[in-house]
Design a protein around this nucleic acid. Structure first.
Lengths: 340, 340
DNA sequence: TTTCACGCTGTGAGCGTTCACACTGAGCGC
DNA sequence: GCGCTCAGTGTGAACGCTCACAGCGTGAAA
């Protein structure tokens, strides 16, 4: 609520300097926490800043520092729970360290769209970029474009096309399958995400690992598309074939559809078939029945990504390890198989 | 893939000017589509820009224009379907007109958090702000802070605390209730969102309107909190009391919980109780049973918000009407009441 | 021919900040 | 007392762009 003197324009450093009786350079030093400023001068400057309601002009600053203090976030499926939640973590972490977060979403993942987005961020002059939900094509195209700023991805990319952070998807899948094996299941299928997604591929690998570790065959693997509609379809098929007594599903949404498909066809869950999801979105506890699922800490993932990007930006930033551990949340869709 | 001559630093206007054999001012004119440039000069400049891979420096530009070409988006519940989807529309529309989108999320809606966020956007120098999912406290605090930039809200705020765009929630609720009345229901309850949310209050009003229009009593109104957990709770209660034969639920998540609560207690849907949700998130079609719900076009809402903000920014921008119409999607959770 | 207008172009200044440097005076050892 | 350092401060020059203005030539009107 400070009254701006005379002119209507926002106060600048010179105004602060005049009021504090110092040069504009001293004001700059106070702002940037330079050591060589006397306590008296610092106090007067701070008082003047408060009095005038002065705010440094970010454009002028970044013109000379060549830093925009802005991190770009490129997302492709923001309406989904995981990505949205990751964005949340990303934003909070970035803001905590004084960065602004600029987003762009990809309606379709085409090379052209990726290039446009990179151009967009380039035009804005972001300091770095985080890619959320890395559709594989996106990562490859990004690699091809080779932007002028560091890029980090939120993925469990096994080939490390890009540095970043990821959830240990393989571990998550293993946990789920081991739980099912522990309950006595011997035929455990997997409704996976699209095979060309890294996360999906890793989950398939974890499913295979666990099965192989128990000497079981990994014979029922179905490719899905992350949607409830596809889950429903596969649920109907599974109910008809009765090929497995348990199924690991690539995400909660497909699990929702599968649950309905299976039950609509007259099967009981978990008596006739056990189901494990992936993600643990808040609604999973209210599916019918409540879904056993693998929880991923998406916000932590977002934070780690910022950590990784900061490390790429400043050499002296410490970086938390990039792998986030998932954990199994057991609810009511899993149980001992009932001999029919 | 252009090779930058000699120095490693990014090319600037002067470099382009030299290569094109014109002055830097002519380059600027080409960039800003000024009319008075000869075709020849324009072509040479454009060729030089392409050749050098020149990109205007946004900081320098906004230093002098006092525009950042950035729109801030303040959201409080980004992990929910509606807000996330709105953000999507917002971002696309903003990018289409050459704006960057910077986001900040509110973990908790406290006056301090709102002020911090506004400061954050102020520090960044955004040209305007869009508020998504306006928790009423947020809007009031925003009104109090009175930021230096125009603010627009995505809300059906009846008091128009802020200009913006909104979905006609009242209409949506009316549509749903009329559908139930048409099926023969005479006791129709409403599990609403928190009463202090504008959207929730509007839906309550619509529910009342429709009931009054048919000469029915509006006696079962319950306040919820948007969560599936609360829906479950109310579902159990409703199953015990059998107070109504139909219920309009404030959002799909609560409807999910309610569906489970009601069915777990032995009631059939829709035979014993009909349920209508609100939002139509993609999963709603795979609830058990598939949910009849009111669809809201969140992306359109986002687009309208950008339109409203642009109108506040440039006087000469045309503005689409701010009210988005919802529509009822009938699935399997609604049917004729069965006399018990 | 002279004059004026107008399309096109270039020059100077300034946006608000930071960086490199130069300067001051106090404190200290010789 | 002299020179040294060194904390504290100020000055000039950038950063890359846009705006205001002035200059130039051409063509039409006088």
């Amino acid at each position: 609520m400070s009254i701006h003197p005379a002119s209507r324009r926002a106060p600048v450093m010179k105004d602060v300097a005049r009021m504090a009786g110092v040069s504009y350079q001293t004001v700059s030093r106070v702002l940037n926490q330079h050591p060589n400023v006397s306590a008296g001068a610092r106090e007067r400057v701070e008082a003047a800043i408060a009095e005038l309601g002065y705010r440094p002009n970010p454009a002028a600053r970044s013109l000379v520092t060549r830093r925009s203090q802005t991190i770009g976030v490129l997302a492709s499926e923001l309406a989904q729970y995981g990505p949205a939640r990751t964005l949340l973590g990303l934003e909070q972490a970035a803001r905590d360290v004084g960065y602004f977060v600029s987003i762009a979403t990809l309606r379709t993942v085409t090379p052209q769209a990726v290039r446009d987005a990179v151009d967009h961020f380039g035009d804005q002059g972001v300091d770095g970029l985080v890619v959320v939900v890395p559709h594989p094509g996106l990562l490859e195209e990004l690699d091809r474009v080779a932007p002028a700023f560091p890029v980090v991805a939120a993925t469990s990319d096994p080939e490390r096309l890009l540095a970043g952070a990821g959830v240990d998807q393989r571990l998550g899948a293993r946990l789920a399958v081991q739980h099912l094996i522990g309950l006595g299941h011997t035929s455990i299928g997997h409704l996976a995400g699209p095979f060309d997604w890294y996360d999906a591929a890793e989950r398939v690998a974890g499913w295979r690992d666990a099965l192989a570790g128990a000497g079981l065959a990994a014979d029922l693997l179905v490719e899905g598309d992350w949607t409830a509609a596809r889950g429903y379809e596969v649920g109907r098929e599974l109910a008809a074939s009765r090929a497995v007594t348990a199924v690991l599903v690539g995400n909660d949404q497909m699990a929702l559809g599968l649950l309905r498909g299976v039950q609509e066809a007259g099967l009981r869950v978990p008596e006739d078939i056990s189901v494990v999801g992936f993600d643990d979105q808040p609604e999973a506890a209210y599916f019918f029945p409540p879904l056993t699922t693998v929880r991923q800490d998406f916000e932590e993932l977002g934070r780690r990504c910022i950590g990784a990007l900061l490390a790429a930006l400043d050499a002296d930033a410490q970086q938390a390890p990039g792998v986030v551990e998932p954990r199994l949340v057991v609810r009511s869709t899993t149980g001992r198989p009932v001999a029919s």
